[in-house]
């Protein structure tokens, strides 16, 4: 098997998920300059809800394809409601508070969601039922599963859809307008609260899909899975330039590739001293390196422009 091709492919799959989750971080940051640390937990909630729905559907004898769609829709609906509720009740009252207050609230919200998930679904790893196609293929020397292909197709589609939304629709223009100047956006008749709510809803829907895909890929979910995934996706957003939509996508894909290639080659490179469990070192090392030389991220705008 061709290790390089395999790691590149794995990296793209992993990275495309980081990218979709990173979009949620970057959209919210772009508009509110808030880091929504609960976003990773939204992803986890999506996975958990989907597993529960699939479990119930299988017991009721539903066929696989409608069941997958049903589980996705349920995960999206629950996560959108969660995202909207968090924005409305946790962040909105603090919109004009000093920046530390919403940040601490976000961390608290993240822990709260973890604990809620632990209460509902327990502390164990929960298996993701094998409802997705389980086929395997060879592609340019890499070993590729159906789930991975589905992940790539879905995430690319989502990224394309989001790009169109942000670039071409009135809602997308309003989001960008608020990011550039909130008072002027209001003068244009933009209802900031409504657009912020829509942003949270969209980001949460993306996170829901990403959560389901991640759980399907690894075949399991866990109440704590959102933490590292969220941290990585946040790093991806920072790597690409937080607040920048294209940057989140680029950062996600790059981080996935770096991590995957790092995991594949770290053993041979260190003569076995470090194993693939050190893959995160690579990802965060690159992140630190980029930020030292380009603090605004790869595609980030220089901050002075806001003045």
């Amino acid at each position: 098997m061709d290790i390089l091709a395999q790691q590149i492919f794995n990296g793209l799959v992993l990275g495309s998920i980081y990218a979709v989750v990173a979009l949620g971080y970057t959209m919210v940051y772009g508009i509110l300059e808030l880091i929504n640390f609960a976003h990773g937990e939204i992803t986890m909630m999506g996975a958990m809800v989907a597993i529960s729905v699939i479990g119930m559907g299988l017991a009721a004898g539903l066929p696989a394809l409608p069941l997958i769609l049903l589980a996705m829709l349920a995960a999206i609906a629950v996560c959108m409601c969660l995202g909207l509720a968090i924005e409305r009740f946790a962040y909105r009252p603090l919109r004009h508070a000093p920046r530390l207050a919403p940040l601490i609230t976000a961390i608290g919200m993240s822990i709260l969601l973890q604990n809620i998930a632990m209460l509902i679904w327990g502390k164990q790893y929960i298996p993701f039922p094998p409802v997705f196609p389980q086929g395997e293929h060879r592609l340019l020397g890499a070993h590729v599963t159906d789930v991975q292909l589905i992940i790539l197709a879905t995430t690319l589609l989502l990224m394309l859809a989001l790009t169109l939304l942000v670039q071409r629709t009135p809602l997308g223009r309003a989001m960008r307008a608020i990011a550039q100047s909130q008072p002027v956006a209001q003068l244009m008749g933009v209802n900031v609260n409504r657009v912020v709510a829509a942003t949270f809803a969209i980001g949460s829907a993306l996170a829901a899909v990403a959560g389901v895909l991640v759980a399907a890929n690894y075949g399991q979910a866990h109440y704590y899975m959102g933490f590292l995934l969220g941290l990585k996706a946040f790093s991806a957003a920072v790597l690409g330039g937080i607040g920048n939509i294209a940057g989140a996508m680029l950062g996600g894909l790059l981080l996935g590739l770096i991590e995957s290639l790092g995991a594949g080659y770290i053993g041979p490179l260190t003569h076995g001293f470090l194993g693939s469990n050190y893959q995160d070192v690579f990802a965060f090392f690159v992140l630190i390196l980029v930020l030292v030389f380009r603090p605004s991220g790869l595609l980030g705008e220089r901050v002075v422009e806001r003045a």
Binding site: Q180, S181, P183, V184, L187, E301
Partner: peptide, 13 residues
């Protein structure tokens, strides 16, 4: 409609 001081155009649009 108010055109604010400093014009308030959206620079990145």
């Amino acid at each position: 409609t108010l055109v604010p001081e400093g014009r308030g155009i959206f620079p990145r649009m």
